[in-house]
């Protein structure tokens, strides 16, 4: 269904090395407007590095990143943010001595719409309501619990009014109740028309949410396609064999 929509992000033959370690090996992918694109792979497969290359934290050693047709390869992250790419971090990074609301305002102020303080305050209120942190708006972000910090990451990213949202393991470390709440939030974001790329280890979640799934192993693509097709791909199962529990969960997730 998404194939007819226009391409929002194209990653073309991107490679990234750290010393002798190849973190990404000629990775290519395209993401269409409005879809949820899941990225899975064993630990150390290069998933977070891929995010870092997409939003400009690293400049790739080769290859190109096209966002809405514009070449943004090697552009610093704040430029990516201005263009409408927002992300959350796998390890939460709250601005600890600022309040929850100020955190969200930073997102709004310096995001795609480059809002004034006054307008970003209104946006921040809206977003905090949306992710369920309104009651904590005056709390210092450093004092939030882990589930709240995850939602704060989400709020900051959303406050930027992004066109493309990169979610890096937003479900990790949450209990089942919190996971369910977060999934609801993600679906609502998609319903607003935001394109989402999510890195996730929680298989049932990624398999249920994603329109398409992309599998990385040792920095290279090993599979891509609809969730059902990917989870029965022998190469994918093999990639997870080092981790039998994960392979098991993968199979369950597809069931």
């Amino acid at each position: 269904m998404t194939n007819t929509a226009s391409v929002i992000l194209a990653v073309e033959n991107v490679s990234m090395r750290f010393g002798g370690l190849v973190a990404l090996d000629r990775v290519s992918l395209t993401v269409h407007e409005g879809e949820i694109f899941g990225i899975i792979g064993p630990n150390g497969a290069g998933k977070t590095t891929l995010f870092n290359v997409i939003n400009g934290v690293y400049a790739p050693h080769e290859g190109r990143i096209l966002f809405r047709g514009e070449d943004i390869t090697g552009m610093p992250p704040f430029q990516a943010s201005r263009r409408g790419i927002a992300r959350t971090h796998q390890v939460v990074r709250p601005l600890g001595e600022l309040t929850t609301k100020e955190n969200a305002m930073v997102g709004a102020c310096f995001g795609r719409e480059n809002l004034s303080l006054e307008k970003s305050s209104i946006v921040a209120d809206e977003i905090l309501e949306f992710v369920g942190l309104a009651a904590r708006q005056d709390m210092l972000a450093g004092k939030l619990n882990i589930a709240q910090k995850k939602r704060l990451e989400m709020a900051r990213a959303l406050a930027a009014r992004p066109l493309l949202l990169l979610l890096d393991e937003v479900l990790a470390g949450l209990n089942p109740q919190e996971v369910a709440e977060m999934l609801t939030v993600i679906r609502k974001i998609r319903d607003q028309g935001v394109t989402i790329i999510m890195i996730e280890h929680l298989m049932h979640a990624v398999m249920n949410l994603s329109d398409r799934v992309f599998v990385l192993d040792y920095g290279a693509k090993i599979a891509e396609g609809a969730p059902q097709a990917v989870s029965s791909d022998p190469r994918v199962i093999e990639a997870y064999l080092g981790d039998p529990k994960m392979a098991q969960r993968l199979l369950e997730g597809s069931a």
Partner: peptide, 18 residues
């Protein structure tokens, strides 16, 4: 506000558009 964000976490601030 941008300065305070840099103080708290410069890399995160950069990703947020500063």
């Amino acid at each position: 506000l941008g300065l305070l964000a840099i103080r708290e976490d410069q890399d995160a601030a950069k990703v947020l558009g500063i």
